[in-house]
Design a protein around this nucleic acid. Structure first.
Length: 647
RNA sequence: GCCGGCGUAGCUCAGGGGUAGAGCAACUGAUUCGUAAUCAGUAGGUCGCGGGUUCAAAUCCCAUCGCCGGCUCCA
């Protein structure tokens, strides 16, 4: 007797008795191969356990182990398993908070008097394996919310009680695995036997519900995969990321240093890093000149009144260093460049005829960051923005945004970044400016993005209070996303500084102001570049493009000659004329990631040539210095926009 | 700022109450060498800084600075 009819993904319908579980139904609707990869099911679009009894006609969509959703499910279930292990090992006084799946794995937050040690992770992991080995099922039950509150209150689980009190539902679901019961919406895996490839990765503190005023909990992060090989691959990737860590490479390659005596978050650029920065800056300035920008320079401090007028003191005060008294006048170290650019705007009357005005500056700003937030070059207290401000009429906004996007992508591509995540942030709850302005500007941003052919996501309400913005995150060779570019429309500063231009009609109008940074900060961008290329920079960016290695002292004079000729031709060259074996010199040049090694022995000296060894170990045919200069010129240009290599 | 971990030679790290160690780098000398480390010697440290406990502290305790993993924030 068939009471309900079920189908998979709109396929052929089949009849089943009411109360048939999804699992039983899928047994008949799927091939056994598909069934084995299925860990949950979407019933009319809603994710559910396989054990769910079905009461109505439905369309079923299997959730499989090879899907994103299936992986998240595994990790979520693993979080429960971990909580189980923690309670087993640390006793019922452990208070459990929440344990979701996140991007690379999962975490669970706990509250207990003693603190976890790194060794505990291994113990917990071992206990998890024991529980999983028993193939304990995940069992779902439902009960009235009030009953659940009583239950968790009785168990001494205040975080669960708090969550339950805020839930807007009469009945709630609980899941039990082994003898651990947790409040959870589900769904979960059928049983813990799936949870084999698990690794607990790190310990961390985390505020309850991310709120600084709430208790600090202990968070355990971990990850899980269906396949042990996948886990191994993931751990290898972590290892690869560690090898590329810009702080490690920055030290090894002598690119930058941070000294305790100087201060946290303040970067000292060593000669090689400084040279690389000069190359970036020169390129940046050239491109901006080509795109009709004009370059500005502005000071590092200004009277505090400027920051009162701009509103930074009120809205950005907690990110600013405290002010400095100079002859009884208070001055403020700048956290942004915009007020200075406005100062230049105000230096004379402006006409619509000169619009759009495009002013750029590599402006060094200082922002107060909490010590705990600092991180190598990625998060610092003093940094240089590749800033620009564009003043234009409302009707020019869309085209200007388009131009910015165009320049932006061109520059990012030249540095080898071809993948982006683009976000458009719209009006937040608290904002300045009229609704019409917001709407028009947001529309202009959208149109420009679409015209540029960029796929983007909308972040509703995530705009800054003064206007909508576009953020671009670049993806590095390991697939990690980094916030760099930001393009922001500003309705606020033109108003506050009362800037205007004379329009066609002879009247004064308020210009639209756009802030934008493409690389974001030179420091962070440099950090991302280091990790992207693993320190092996493309030829056009390599601080040292070539190093001359002689075989014996007999070639010292020739080494000098080649060195001088290459320098004169503008090649960034070094010489290693130490009395060491060639093997030794090659090894050092290799570790220094120098792209070209120029080997010079008696043969080369006699022929007036150099033998060229590349960073990948291959050799080129011997060539003359003039030939090499031409070769490097071509290769250097070709290396702009070249992709980085992973692994 | 908060939770946890860690600060020993320029770098990577050992030593965990009883005379500060190794490798690499540096320096000196020998060697003159063809595609990822030649050999020998020399020098180098108030064990992050400040208190305390102890006959005795790199080691134990407290405080502080810095770094690391997160939370929060963002270029």
């Amino acid at each position: 007797m068939a009471d309900i009819s079920l189908a998979v993904r709109g396929g052929e319908q089949k009849g089943f008795p009411v109360g048939t579980t999804a699992e039983a139904a899928l047994k008949e609707l799927l091939t056994s191969k598909e069934r084995k990869r299925t860990v949950a099911v979407r019933v009319n679009g809603t994710a559910m356990d396989l054990a769910t009894p079905l009461a109505t006609d439905a369309d079923l969509e299997p959730v499989t182990v090879d899907s994103e959703e299936g992986l998240a499910l595994l990790r979520h279930s693993t979080a429960h398993l971990m909580a189980h292990a923690v309670v087993d090992l640390f006793g019922a006084e452990v208070r459990v908070a929440i344990g979701p799946a996140v991007a690379d794995g999962f975490y669970y937050d706990f509250d207990l008097a003693e603190s976890f040690s790194p060794d505990d992770l291994e113990r917990i992991e071992a206990r998890m394996q024991e529980i999983a080995a028993g193939n304990a099922p995940f069992v779902r039950t439902t009960m009235a919310r009030d009953e659940a509150i009583r239950l968790f209150d009785q168990k001494g689980q205040p975080y669960k009680v708090e969550l339950l009190r805020e839930l807007d539902a009469d009945t709630v679901s609980l899941y039990q695995v082994g003898d651990f019961v947790d409040l959870c919406r589900g769904p979960h895996l059928p049983h813990a036997g799936w949870l084999k490839a698990v690794k607990l990765t790190r310990l961390a503190g985390a505020y309850w519900r991310g709120d600084e005023k709430r208790p600090m909990l202990q968070r355990i992060y971990g990850t899980a995969f269906y396949d042990a090989k996948e886990l191994k691959k993931y751990l290898q990737q972590l290892e690869e990321a560690r090898k590329r860590d810009h702080r490690k490479l920055g030290k090894e390659l002598e690119l930058f240093t941070i000294q305790e005596q100087v201060g946290p978050g303040l970067i000292l650029w060593q000669p090689k890093g400084a040279l690389l920065r000069k190359l970036i800056e020169d390129y940046w300035k050239d491109e901006h000149y080509r795109h009709d920008y004009e370059l500005l320079y502005t000071p590092h401090i200004a009277k505090i009144d400027l920051w009162k007028t701009s509103g930074h003191l009120d809205f950005y005060g907690e990110n600013m260093f405290s002010s400095i008294d100079i002859e009884e006048v208070r001055y403020q170290l700048k956290p942004m460049n915009c007020p200075f650019h406005i100062g230049i705007y105000k230096s004379r009357k402006r006409s619509y005829r000169e619009f759009p005005v495009r002013w750029c500056e590599l402006g060094t700003v200082y922002r107060f960051e909490k010590t705990g937030a600092l991180h190598g070059l990625m998060r610092v207290r003093g940094f240089t923005q590749d800033d620009a401000h564009i003043f234009c009429r409302p009707d020019q906004l869309e085209e200007e945004i388009f131009n910015i996007l165009d320049l932006n992508l061109h520059i990012l591509q030249t540095f080898g970044f071809a993948e982006y995540d683009v976000y458009l942030s719209t009006r937040p709850e608290k904002y300045v400016g009229s609704d019409e302005h917001w709407e028009a500007a947001t529309e202009a941003l959208k149109l420009a993005l679409e015209k540029k052919g960029l796929a983007y996501e909308i972040d509703p309400g995530e705009g800054v209070f003064y206007g909508p913005k576009i953020d671009i995150k670049i993806r590095d060779v390991l697939g990690r996303a980094w916030q760099c570019s930001t393009i922001q429309v500003d309705f606020n500063l033109p108003e506050r500084f009362e800037i205007s231009y004379t329009g066609e009609d002879g009247r004064e109008h308020q210009p639209i102001m756009i802030h934008r940074a493409l690389m974001g900060s030179l420091e962070r961008f440099f950090g991302v570049l280091i990790e992207h290329y693993a320190g092996a920079f493309p030829l056009w960016l390599a601080p040292v493009q070539a190093r001359i290695l002689n075989i014996t002292d007999a070639q010292l004079g020739y080494v000098d000659q080649v060195y001088r000729e290459l320098r004169a031709a503008g090649i960034r060259v070094e010489k290693d004329d130490r009395n060491e074996k060639l093997n030794y010199k090659i090894r050092e040049a290799q570790l220094a990631k120098v792209p070209y090694m120029l080997i010079v022995g008696d043969n080369e000296m006699a022929a007036g040539q150099v033998t060229v060894r590349l960073r990948d170990g291959k050799n080129l045919e011997p060539m003359t210095v003039a030939g090499l200069v031409e070769w490097l010129r071509v290769e250097s240009a070709a290396s702009m926009g070249a992709a980085a290599v992973a692994g």
